[in-house]
């Protein structure tokens, strides 16, 4: 009986590889299979032999079942391999990519600058582009026929209504609206208009960003502090700045801020006209007349204002030579900004 089992085991194992797996299982392990047949013969054995042979028989069953499972796994894996081979594709082919959108470079610059000032605790304000002479000029210490109005040729819609020539009327409006509240800390992005013929450096419409702080005890050194930090955030941690005296009707003292040339780092190049410095924005301490026009007491409050051209910063940052590029909207240029992470 024992020999019979051993012979059965060896035969089954030797045939496993060449048989159909299911047929093999039915033949040897099935209810009517060889092993079952042998076991049915156990009834003829003596009571002493029966447990011994039974144990033997179970061992053989275990060996065969294990062999079956291993063979099945082997065949399944082979099947899977074949299936994958049949399904193999060229992974180097491009995927179904959807179009990549992009933010316009001018909007990108505005967002960046807004974020810097929001980080300083400034609120973003805006105001109308079609403005009253009163806010665009008069409240900003630019009475009618002031020669400084010539600095900004204006598009008029009527005698009193015009397209704002700068974002500064939002200063006047904010002061008037919020008076006597302090502190005022605002940043104002927006579109402005000047009656200039379009060329590589002029556009009849362009964008500015303006910042205004009004409070007790605001000093010009605070202005410088904000500017130093602003320049570092916008252009890099080691960015140097300098202030030069200048003139704006709505600030006194007034200054022009230069940054150390971001291309030659001060050695002199064509961008900085060999000076090592690039003019980037105008600023100054809010003129007392502007504070008074807004209802504030210029004797006890001071403030500073900063104004810059968005296109100029975009031109410098992205090395765009012609301001009109921003308004042509050639998608071949705009698409390049899809890959810029900030």
């Amino acid at each position: 009986m024992k020999d019979k089992l051993l012979a059965l085991r060896d035969e089954a194992l030797s045939r496993l590889e060449h048989s159909d797996l299911e047929a093999w299982r039915v033949e040897y392990l099935g209810k009517k299979g060889e092993l079952a047949t042998v076991l049915r013969g156990m009834a003829t054995l003596s009571a002493e032999e029966r447990p011994v042979v039974g144990q033997y028989a179970n061992q053989v069953r275990a060996v065969l079942e294990e062999a079956f499972a291993a063979r099945k796994a082997e065949l399944d894996s082979h099947q899977a391999t074949l299936r994958e081979q049949a399904e193999t594709i060229d992974v180097t082919l491009a995927g179904r990519i959807s179009y990549l959108g992009a933010e316009h470079p001018l909007r990108k610059v505005i967002r960046r600058i807004e974020d810097i000032f929001v980080g300083f605790g400034f609120t973003v304000e805006d105001g109308p582009e079609v403005e009253l002479d009163r806010y665009n000029f008069e409240a900003l210490n630019l009475p009618k026929d002031h020669p400084a109005r010539d600095m900004q040729d204006t598009f008029y819609l009527t005698d009193e209504i015009l397209l704002r020539t700068h974002t500064s009327p939002v200063q006047a409006r904010t002061l008037e609206r919020r008076c006597p509240e302090t502190p005022i800390r605002i940043v104002v992005p927006g579109r402005v208009y000047r009656r200039d013929d379009d060329d590589a450096t002029h556009s009849h419409a362009f964008m500015q960003i303006e910042a205004l702080v009004v409070d007790h005890g605001i000093r010009m050194s605070d202005l410088k502090g904000i500017l130093v930090q602003f320049a570092r955030e916008l252009f890099g941690a080691d960015q140097e700045i300098r202030l030069r005296p200048s003139f704006f009707p709505f600030t006194e003292p007034s200054a022009e801020m230069d940054i150390r040339c971001i291309y030659c780092h001060g050695d002199g190049c064509s961008t900085c006209k060999q000076t090592g410095w690039i003019e980037i924005l105008g600023c100054g301490m809010v003129h007392p007349h502007v504070l008074e026009a807004g209802g504030y007491d210029a004797g006890s409050l001071t403030g500073f204002a900063i104004g810059m051209g968005v296109e100029r910063i975009a031109m410098l940052s992205y090395q765009v030579e012609d301001i009109r590029q921003f308004y042509l909207n050639d998608v071949r240029l705009l698409e390049q900004f899809a890959t810029l992470t900030r």
């Binding site: 805006d126 007790h216 005890g217 050194s221 300098r242 030069r244 005296p245």
Partner: peptide, 25 residues
Amino acid sequence: IARLVGYDHIPATMIVGPLTGGELS
């Protein structure tokens, strides 16, 4: 005064005043 002393002479300081939260409308 600032012009003739030189704008370079102006230090960089931090605004003294209450904290304000910057925000967008």
